[in-house]
């Protein structure tokens, strides 16, 4: 199977997404931002529909709306409470706007829809290169804010006292999720990126308290889920998304059971 170009591309992009999702996912889990991740990926659809309406490449709309959503969530949750409620409300407002764009458009908006159904077995060499570039870019961004972000995440009060600009940091991180999610959706689809950003990194944080180890372990678990999912999809003909998502969920549940059983 490895001699087929589409399988090679699937394995390479799978690895890239696993790494990016492993790194960002570590912070997603610690900051309790799974909902924001889900919402930001969903919001992109509204942007794609809007872009079709004004005749721009859908991918720009996807990115613009997702970033706007990140900004909205970050600004509105500035005063602490009700973060999850704000995420839900920003998401529904954005999706409702997407429905409006569809109505105003009134031709076949197939471009917007096809963008959302990326599939890992349909990735071209150019997309591999683009994904690699984006992966490097998002890793550099996270690296640049790594220390303050980690500090602010594990010790909110102390970070606040030391004058770390919490809101800027929080919006930048949400923007990071938005960029990572929307740029990978057209190639691998919404399901895969969400699955890999939450479940395996969460499993990793259950197994170790040390940040670097948790990030490394999260990447390894992601790679295991992703590659075995792709390989099994090839031999069985079952959908890749189903296999990878199931493995990701099973890894988390397995580790939860393991840590509960072995806990003193």
């Amino acid at each position: 199977m490895i001699e087929l170009p589409y399988m090679q591309n699937a394995f390479i992009v799978g690895a890239l997404v696993s790494i990016v999702a492993g790194v960002i996912g570590f912070f997603v889990v610690l900051r309790g931002a799974s909902f924001a991740t889900h919402a930001l990926a969903q919001i992109g659809f509204a942007g794609a529909a809007g872009a079709v309406l004004i005749g721009v490449e859908p991918v720009w709309g996807l990115l613009a709306f997702s970033l706007l959503g990140a900004g909205g969530m970050g600004i509105l949750s500035a005063r602490g409470s009700a973060r999850d409620a704000i995420t839900a409300l920003v998401m529904t407002a954005a999706l409702g706007t997407g429905a409006l764009f569809l109505v105003l458009n009134r031709t076949y908006a197939t471009d917007a829809f096809s963008l959302l159904f990326g599939t890992i077995v349909g990735i071209s060499r150019t997309q591999v290169a683009a994904t690699a570039a984006l992966a490097v870019l998002s890793l550099l961004t996270v690296a640049a804010m790594y220390r303050p972000l980690l500090f602010a995440t594990v010790n909110t009060e102390a970070a606040h006292a030391r004058g770390i600009p919490m809101q800027v940091l929080s919006i930048s991180f949400l923007a990071c999720i938005a960029i990572a999610a929307t740029t990978t959706i057209p190639t691998v689809g919404t399901l895969l990126i969400f699955a890999l950003m939450v479940a395996p990194p969460a499993a990793a944080t259950l197994l170790t308290d040390r940040p670097w180890r948790a990030i490394g372990l999260g990447i390894v678990l992601n790679l295991v889920c992703c590659w075995s999912g792709i390989a099994l999809a090839f031999t069985t003909g079952l959908p890749v998304g189903f296999l990878i998502a199931s493995f990701a969920a099973l890894v988390y549940i397995g580790v939860r059971v393991y840590t509960t059983v072995t806990a003193p």
Binding site: L4, P5, T110, S114, F117, G122, I123, S124
Partner: peptide, 16 residues
């Protein structure tokens, strides 16, 4: 074509 089977263009691009 016409976006009806956009997955085809993806599959084709993946396997030149």
């Amino acid at each position: 074509g016409l976006g009806y089977d956009a997955f085809m263009q993806k599959l084709e691009a993946a396997s030149p």
